[in-house]
């Protein structure tokens, strides 16, 4: 793995390797000294063309806990807003000596452009590109779910996947990079994914995705999901006629108090609620649901740091040699 650009092309083995490594990272986060020397002397640039304090500080904490030097490059108000191209910015970072670039960008494919051009040689981590993908968000969601179910089963989560789990993703799938990354990753890990959304907020072509699609949230709840992932809905979509009003959206596709209560009526004691944040309370999710014991929102945030540590570690700890199991084995025996 040279870069992490999407979950679409992530193999099951690589996904599990990231999740297992994140488990070890998570143990470090519980220690008094929350720091490892693994990336000492390496430079990680957080290149953010969109404001996203949450994602940025998560990556920053992850890099710092691995002892990397962190440079935060917020493109707003910089030379970029004066018309500097992505290419020039990338080449600047190359000249500075960046070993990894964590990029958040409003254009779909921006991370892949960085990774596949000769503008920069650093490892590229996609921290959200347009409406394409947000792979570390999906990984932290998978990590959170895996832990939850391992805990219920009383088994260690290491090495396990999400086989058989039913995950329902609700909201603006069309514009959601989180939904895309989760559909690919969760299904790669064996989960059954159902998308619930107004037909206007599903992409043409969604019927080719490895999941089922439904328009009725209540029916989806009656199908007894193990997890419900709510997506953020931007109220301004209303102005482009994606739905008639926020009130109607909330009634049909929001996780309001009644639907939340229905989970208990159905005896779904262990069904959890996820949200990538930031939440719009009252639109897609009620405060009762968001603040309930089912909500994994804060665990998602904490797990985000562990998952991002794992990704940075796996991408950066091997700088010179490609992945080669034979070489690893030979070295180990010689020690």
């Amino acid at each position: 793995m040279r870069h992490l650009l999407s979950t679409h092309d992530l193999s099951r083995a690589d996904a599990i390797r990231i999740l297992d490594t994140a488990e070890e990272m998570s143990a470090v986060n519980d220690r008094e000294v929350k720091k490892l020397p693994a990336l000492r002397g390496r430079t990680v640039v957080n290149l953010f063309f969109e404001d996203s304090t949450r994602t940025r500080i998560s990556f920053e904490a992850a890099a710092k806990r691995l002892s990397a030097d962190v440079i935060n490059f917020a493109a707003k108000g910089s030379s970029v807003s004066k018309g500097e191209s992505l290419k020039d910015t990338a080449q600047t970072l190359e000249a500075i000596g960046a070993d990894a670039v964590v990029i958040r960008h409003p254009a779909s494919g921006a991370a892949q452009r960085l990774a596949t051009t000769d503008w920069i040689s650093a490892a590229v981590v996609n921290a959200g590109d347009g409406t394409h993908e947000h792979p570390t968000q999906a990984l932290l969601d998978a990590f959170t779910l895996r832990r939850h179910w391992a805990k219920l089963a009383g088994t260690p989560s290491g090495g396990t996947d999400l086989a058989g789990a039913k995950v329902t993703i609700v909201g603006d799938v069309l514009h959601s990079r989180v939904a895309r990354s989760n559909v690919w990753l969760l299904t790669t890990l064996g989960a059954q994914v159902t998308l619930v959304a107004p037909p206007t907020l599903l992409p043409i072509g969604v019927e080719h995705w490895p999941c089922t699609v439904a328009y009725d949230f209540d029916e989806a709840i009656d199908a007894k999901p193990d997890a419900i992932m709510m997506l953020r809905v931007q109220a301004e979509r209303m102005n482009a006629s994606y739905f008639p009003s926020t009130g109607e959206y909330s009634r049909r596709w929001g996780l309001g108090d009644e639907r939340f209560a229905r989970l208990a009526e159905l005896g779904l004691a262990d069904t959890v609620i996820l949200h990538p944040g930031p939440m719009v309370r009252g639109l897609e999710i009620s405060s009762t649901a968001a603040d309930s014991a089912r909500s994994q929102v804060l665990r998602q945030v904490a797990n985000g740091v562990s998952v991002r540590m794992a990704v940075l570690y796996l991408l950066l700890s091997s700088g010179l040699y490609a992945q080669d199991a034979t070489a690893a084995h030979a070295k180990e025996s010689a020690s």
Partner: peptide
Amino acid sequence: LARQPTRPPART
């Protein structure tokens, strides 16, 4: 670390 293929960490 930088000279070796990536090693997933083990548990402490």
